[in-house]
Amino acid sequence: MAKQYTKETIQSVFIEMLNERPLSKITIKEIAERSEINRNTFYYHYEDIYELLSEIFQKEIETFINEYNDTLSWEDSFISASRFALENKKAIYHIYNSMQREELRDYIYNVAGEVMGKYVERVNRNIGASKEDEIMVKEFYQCALTEMVLRWISTGMKEDPNLVIKRIGKLFDGNIERSLSRSGSL
């Protein structure tokens, strides 16, 4: 119980610090001081800041998977899955502009994959496209969403992501179903 509390405190302090300044300006010593622990306690839980960051992203993905609602559209699911990024825009921007950009890209890619995978699988239950085509459609939208989010971050996250995602949904409405339906004739 105390171990979990300590880890949650470290994670919370780290996210708070990321919202204040770039990743490169955060030290383990500062995290430990703000968390009111000693450095050895930090190292008991994490090898370094990058392992801490990786665990935070993994935890967010697991939270989404556990809270996934099969009745939501992919747009609403993606917005729900992006809750952490929307609540911590500065932290995300600081990570994007650090050496850990790849960690952020992987996190976004995994979230997009979970959202699109579950949605495409649900749509395909009524269509019966081959598993290979189902995977291909999922991966196409996973890649497209990942790049859209990375572009949004790189341009300063000025646009309202809810409006952008909803608009993409309207522009491409029905394309997933049509793509899966074509599978049988290929």
Rank of each mutant, 00 (worst) to 15 (best):
K3S: 11
I10T: 02
Q11H: 07
S12V: 03
M17D: 09
P22W: 05
P22K: 07
I28M: 06
I28D: 08
I28W: 05
K29M: 10
E33P: 00
S35V: 08
E36M: 11
E36F: 14
R39W: 09
Y43F: 15
E47I: 13
I49C: 08
Y50V: 12
Y50W: 11
E51S: 08
L52Y: 07
I61D: 00
I65Y: 04
E67A: 09
Y68C: 06
D70Q: 15
T71C: 04
L72I: 07
L72A: 06
E75C: 14
S77P: 07
S77Q: 13
I79D: 07
S80M: 10
A81L: 01
S82Q: 12
S82L: 15
F84H: 02
A85L: 13
L86N: 09
I92E: 00
Y93H: 12
I95P: 01
M99V: 13
M99N: 15
M99K: 15
L104S: 09
Y107H: 02
I108V: 12
N110W: 06
G117V: 09
K118S: 11
R122P: 08
R122D: 04
G128P: 08
E132A: 13
I135K: 14
Y141I: 12
Q142D: 05
E147F: 07
V149W: 04
R151W: 08
W152C: 01
G169L: 09
L171R: 11
G174T: 04
S179M: 14
G184T: 11
S185C: 12
